[in-house]
Amino acid sequence: MTDSTTQPVNLQMQKLSASIKDWGLALGFNHVGITDTDLHEAEARHQDWIKKGFHGEMDYMAKHGIKRTRPAELVPKTLRVISVRMDYLPPNAADSESILHNGEKAFISRYALGRDYHKVMRSRLQKLCEKIQAELSTLNIPSPCEGEGQGGGGDKTTPVFEYRVFTDSAPVLEVALAEKAGLGWRGKHTLLINKDRGSWFFLGEIYTNLPLATDAPASNHCGTCSSCMEVCPTQAITAPYEVDARRCISYLTIELKGSIPLALRPLIGNRVYGCDDCQLFCPWNKFAEITRETDFAVRNGLDDISLIDCFNWSEDAFKANMAGSAIYRIGYEQWLRNIAIGLGNAKTSPEIVAALQSRLNEASEMLREHISWALDKHLAGNI
């Protein structure tokens, strides 16, 4: 972009908006869109969802109030949101359906097979902000957004860039924002779907005070399809575009810290971290592409690993194998809890019984309860 005092601010911002998209693609994002901050329709849906108690024990979903649905309440002066997506389907990963149908294996959601996406996305978003800041320093126009900010600085004739970056790390309605920014539409499973790339991708945001040019929102193409609702193992998709997190396997294995409800344990199968069923059977994912991001490649054989091997890890082994992974955040005890349920749902064998018994006495009360449940299933011959 060339420096010019004769171009109006809106034209400067249009050019900057186009450049931001080019820079984002160069940094490894697969799509970049820009939207305003009006989320009044999404706010009504979100508040209704909270009132129904569908957020379960995720208290943070409710405690921030309107900050989640009104970006300028979370980050003052926010005028625009830059929304990005990055594909994560790893290359050369074992076939998901084969792992799900093998009761001796541990199924881990495809997004968690590589490096923690929070770190990857946040780093790239920060680099994008640095590119924006560098470009703004070359402009010499009356600032439409004066003030001091985290990314800003400069004289009165240079736009001050204020921003914050987010990757599933704050009260942000990222799917609603991404839909408004044209990245895709909210599917009946509540995940974002892109017509050309399916849904196997991460989302991230930059809240900014710059009056950038906005994109048209995406249109919905789910039609009459209800595959995601039909295949959900726990029937957590209670209505189109509505999920009861308390029944969702991703919530149960990741967000829920205590005891998993007895009635849901057999339905979890061998899904020990997250659940991909609604995406695996979504017809739009026939267009999904393998990620080019090396950080999302499979680590430590997590795409094809046995339940017993996972259960036999020491805490040190867990920390070593999961270092830099999103799985590390759930901790060792919760990991063993999830594996115990997977073992309880597996076909009975002397090896499984021995593995469960080996941890029974040393386990915490919460973990012991899940191990005992699994042992009771095997010793009662109910598998």
Rank of each mutant, 00 (worst) to 15 (best):
V243D: 04
L264E: 12
Q334R: 15
K105S: 09
T253W: 01
L25T: 14
A245N: 09
I341H: 00
N30F: 05
N92M: 09
P142R: 11
H378V: 01
T5G: 08
C248V: 10
K77S: 10
D309S: 15
S227R: 13
S358I: 06
P171W: 03
G381D: 00
C145W: 00
V84Q: 03
A181I: 00
W200D: 05
C282H: 07
I206S: 10
D168F: 09
L89Q: 04
I339S: 06
I371E: 06
D309N: 14
E205R: 01
T6Q: 05
T158M: 09
S364W: 08
G154C: 03
A44K: 14
E365I: 14
G301I: 00
Y88C: 02
L177V: 15
A317E: 14
H64T: 12
Y60W: 15
A320V: 11
S364G: 08
W373R: 00
I305E: 00
N382P: 00
E162C: 05
M58K: 05
P76M: 01
K51Q: 13
K195R: 10
G53F: 03
Q12T: 10
F161A: 11
D3F: 08
V172R: 15
S17Y: 03
T214G: 06
T69A: 15
Q150K: 15
E242G: 07
Q150N: 09
M86I: 07
W49G: 09
T224M: 13
A374T: 09
C145D: 12
G301L: 01
H40P: 07
C310F: 08
G274S: 02
G151C: 12
R68S: 08
S259Q: 11
K347A: 08
W313M: 10
E293L: 01
E369P: 04
R70S: 07
C228L: 05
A213L: 09
A380Y: 06
L79A: 13
T6G: 02
A112D: 06
S19P: 02
D95W: 01
T6S: 12
A317K: 15
N361C: 04
P76R: 02
G152S: 15
I132A: 10
K257P: 05
E174K: 09
E162A: 12
K257A: 14
A26C: 07
G53H: 04
K180Q: 14
F107C: 00
I383K: 08
E362H: 09
R68D: 04
A106N: 04
T2D: 10
S259D: 14
D309F: 05
A94K: 10
C228P: 09
A176C: 05
L113A: 07
T158S: 11
E369L: 11
T78I: 01
E362Q: 14
P233M: 01
C225V: 05
G182S: 08
M322T: 14
Y207R: 06
